[in-house]
Amino acid sequence: MPSFRVQLNILGLRPGNAPEAVMDAAVEALEASHHVEANQLDIVSGVPRITLRIMVPANEYGVENSQARRAAMNMRHAVEQVAKCEQLRVLRRQRGRWLPL
């Protein structure tokens, strides 16, 4: 099964939301359609970034990429309900490296 990373920068919380609501929303959105292998929060140049690793069912290369992109967009939509965000990135694992789609 192909492995993908979905990354999203978090600019700030929307009023009434706790910090953990960001990751909860992201995981819940991705788990609706794919297996979430891992998730983490990093600070990159002073900006919080969530990264989630998902597995996509094996299929044609382009179909796998489309499924990962669709899942990433669903995740962003869910996270935008609790936080302001930017710079959605989807990366695919190939030969030991993470390559952007």
Rank of each mutant, 00 (worst) to 15 (best):
L30V: 02
A78M: 05
R53V: 12
V36H: 09
A78G: 06
Y61V: 09
L101W: 02
A68F: 09
V90M: 02
P19H: 14
R49A: 10
D42Q: 15
A72Y: 00
G96N: 13
P19C: 08
Q94C: 04
V79F: 00
R5P: 03
Y61W: 11
L101V: 13
V47S: 06
E31F: 00
C85E: 10
I50K: 04
E86L: 08
S3F: 05
L99R: 15
R95L: 13
R93C: 06
V56A: 01
R89N: 06
M55K: 06
V90L: 03
N59F: 07
A58T: 10
Q87N: 11
N17W: 10
N65A: 09
L13F: 11
R97Y: 03
E64Q: 08
Q40Y: 13
M23S: 14
L91E: 15
A78C: 06
V56N: 01
P19I: 08
L13S: 13
Q67I: 03
C85Q: 07
N9R: 10
N17R: 09
I50Q: 03
V27P: 02
V27Q: 05
G46F: 10
T51R: 14
R95M: 12
R89W: 00
G62L: 12
V63Y: 06
A21Q: 15
A78E: 06
L13W: 12
M55G: 11
I50L: 13
L88E: 02
V82W: 03
L11F: 04
H34V: 01
V79R: 02
